[in-house]
Write a protein that binds this DNA or RNA. Sequence first.
RNA 1: GGGCCCGUAGCUCAGUUGGAUAGAGCAACGGAUUUCUAAUCCGUAGGUCGGAGGUUCGAUCCCUCUCGGGCCCGCCA
Length: 519
Amino acid sequence: MLRSVLESQVKGAFGLLGVSEPVPYKVEVPPRRELGDYATNAAIVSARTLKKPPMQIAKELVDEINKLDQGRHFSKIEIAPPGFINLFLSDQAIEQRLKEIVPLDREWGKSARYLGRSVLLEYVSANPTGPLHVGHGRWAVFGDCLARLFSAVGYRTEKEFYVNNVGNQVDKLYASVLAARAGAPVPENGYGGAYVQETKGETIGEMLAFNLNEQKKVLASVGVEFDRFYYENELHDQNLVLGAVEQLKRNHQTFVEGGAVWFKSQEHGDDKNRVLVREDGKPTYFAADIAYHLNKFERGYDLMVNIWGTDHHGYVQRLKAALKAIGLPAEKLEIIIGQLVALYRGDEQVRMSKRTGEMVTLKEVVEEIGVDATRFFFAATDVNSHLDFDLELAKKRSSDNPVFYLQYGHARICGILRKGEGSSDQGIKELKISELSTPAERNLIMKLIRFPEVVYDAAQLRHPHRICEYGKELAALFHSFYEQCKVLGNPSREYLVGATRITLRNVLDLLGITAPETM
RNA sequence: GGGCCCGUAGCUCAGUUGGAUAGAGCAACGGAUUUCUAAUCCGUAGGUCGGAGGUUCGAUCCCUCUCGGGCCCGCCA
């Protein structure tokens, strides 16, 4: 990507100044166009260690950059107080990037930065005791988009769903279903939702399988699929849970009290110690989860990412402490906390609770507002922020929905290309950057060539919503361009819209949203 | 009582790990269609970035305190 080329130019300039290890600086897009195509704060952040005024460092850096570059990338470099270096790209550099887009096609935006590395994503992992709620949907879409991003920067990516098919809740479900069928009241601490009545199966195993299958169907309907379902009972059957406890014992991380085996989590900063094996000899969910993650580590991934609901946040430190206590590199496990979705119908908030039975399921939402819109809404915001989601609004405003704005841009271009004679591939030979000089054209071009940087940043920060932001900005610049510039008959513009189509399509692909050719 | 998250325009949300004059969509108001798709575009209006201190060349971003909302603190999962 262009930005990393520029970063190394600055690094080279530092080298010529005799600074081999410059303090970390950034090359970024400045807030206004007059301030260049890219800008760096390198001179400002170095002022302290170099003991020179930032403006002076900036001047020295610019001299060296000019020597190195010889006008290849930059047409102009300016210095602005308190020491920003503003870089203006040459037409040659811009054209070269622009010409990469169409040949790369589906590869455009991807990078090989993490090629050869592997990542395991675990998400949703809902209990098989009922339907998925809207929060699950949000986390599912987030996880799915994150997986696509990881793949786009080179990771070998695996997606996994952990099925908690063991424990008290399982018995509770069984008792609740039988009670519901008999018309009896909900058992103590049982499940009371309407779905209990609808749960099929005679044995508890059949009921769990039924619920899981329903979850899978809903997930598939929003385009979320997994490489593996890992069943908790396998951990128990293979004796892996007690095996994990043994490892903690061996490392003197446990003690016995009240007939139970405890993990000394207080020694790792927890506010209390935690039970691993209960008085009755049954391991806790915590012990099973340690075993599960031990198993993940043994499978040898370079990175493991979990997406957990906010109700599990208190659990993060505990699990990591246990993994460290076993001697595992816990920093390879990253846990992202997903906040809940507050659902509204107009002004009225709908509570999500399995107990009351009043919850709105993911299935209902998808059926109501559609797959593409559901995915876009869930992917468009930071998963760590609370989300207020108004169903009435999402449905009523469906034609003004941002997702249609992107899709319309794609369809509009397809319409143009259908009417044009030449394909984009021909256009590439005739593309002359000098013919694309209006602000509308330049704004669109600059947005396009930054796409790989956006993908990289989004993956790096685990922020799929940046792809949505980028897509909205790109679509806006295209629509604006379209109003001002006649495309057909101008090969350079034909190439430009072809490149825009590919970029929009790749954006939608990263989000798992369809890119229609007509609307 | 303790922990984590959030608080930015009327509403829903961005804000590039501390940068330059804080942005977008919706809602409101005013315009644009003999032209490749008007599911579009152009313009106007809208802000003590919850509040108060602090750190520094510079804070929406970091620290402390505080107010408001959410989630959690089990030998449940």
